[in-house]
């Protein structure tokens, strides 16, 4: 979503601009812009983050910990993990295979395929949930058949997994496609000409080249899988202890005016978001180091 790992590692230092009279602004302009930008940043990003942790600890550590080990919270944690553990690997396999087909081969309609892969990003999460209700719900295409065979998809775990797969669908593919396009096909072609099998070529030639980009995509995919709310909310049915993921648990607690508990669970998700951002930063740093090494 944000600047792929393929294009990282080329920033110039700010001194490059401010030491040059042609690209430097007057001091008051610089300070005004910085103040405006940072005030906006603090107001819209820092303040909400601080609010989550302050509200979570408002009633002290005991309440905080108690609301995290409460059975409903624990089962929500479990369900969130299950959904992510299924959705993320599926989308990794899809992303790698889509990127291989698109970047290592020529075929008609390639651009259309890339656009279609991006489609889930532009669909509202609520609509993403709705489409599965229309297919698997009681009134949906397979509804009667599923009911006859006593299989539950909507208001059950399979529906939550499906919705999670949908909203995290493009992350890995759209990270890998530009990266592998930029790297070209020469190395793989050489390996194949020398007699390596397709899988061996991928494992020993392609994978080492794309590992940081792949990891980057996986981190973003995973963060979204843990945090998805709208799509999962439509298919979940909000059954406590059974079909509640962590974000849904936050909503339920909040709507029941258990603010401290809601923010405690929310703080867990916020911590996860911070870990995600940290990992992302690390991967970007590694990827840019590799670029520098190759250029040297």
């Amino acid at each position: 979503m944000a600047g792929s790992a393929a294009t990282l590692g080329r920033a110039r230092s700010a001194g490059h601009y401010q030491g040059n009279p042609a690209t430097a602004e007057k001091r008051w302009v610089r300070y005004t812009l910085l103040t405006l930008g940072l005030a906006f940043f603090a107001l819209f990003l820092l303040l909400p983050l601080a609010a989550v942790f302050t509200e979570a600890l408002r009633k002290g550590w005991d309440t905080y910990l108690a609301s995290l080990i409460e059975p409903d919270a624990v089962s929500a944690i479990k369900l969130t993990l299950i959904a992510a553990v299924i959705a993320v690997p599926l989308n990794i396999v899809f992303g790698v295979s889509a990127a291989w087909a698109i970047t290592k081969h020529d075929f008609r309609g390639k651009q259309l395929l890339i656009t279609l892969i991006d489609l889930p990003f532009s669909v509202s999460p609520v609509v993403a949930g709705l489409i599965y209700v229309l297919i698997f719900g009681a009134q949906g295409w397979f509804g009667p058949w599923l009911q006859e065979h006593d299989i539950k998809v909507i208001f059950a775990v399979p529906g939550i997994v499906l919705a999670t797969v949908f909203v995290t669908f493009p992350f890995v593919a759209r990270e890998l496609i530009p990266l592998m396009q930029a790297q070209g096909r020469d190395e793989e072609e050489a390996a194949t000409v020398l007699g390596a099998s397709g899988f061996r070529t991928f494992w020993h030639v392609t994978l080492p080249n794309i590992k940081w980009g792949l990891l980057y995509g996986v981190i973003l995919c995973n963060a979204r899988a843990f945090g998805e709310f709208g799509a999962v909310s439509v298919v979940s049915g909000h059954i406590r202890g059974q079909t509640n993921t962590l974000p849904l648990q936050v909503e339920i607690l909040y709507n029941e005016y258990q603010f401290a508990a809601a923010f405690a669970v929310a703080s867990l998700l916020a911590l996860l978001a911070l870990v995600t951002l940290g990992l992302k930063q690390f991967v970007e740093w590694q990827a840019s180091r590799n670029v520098v090494k190759e250029e040297a």
């Binding site: 909400p48 983050l49 609010a51 945090g227 962590l246 974000p247 923010f263 929310a266 978001a273 992302k280």
Partner: peptide
Amino acid sequence: ALPTAVAGIA
């Protein structure tokens, strides 16, 4: 990175 529900209540 922040789940939307968390942003919402914050």
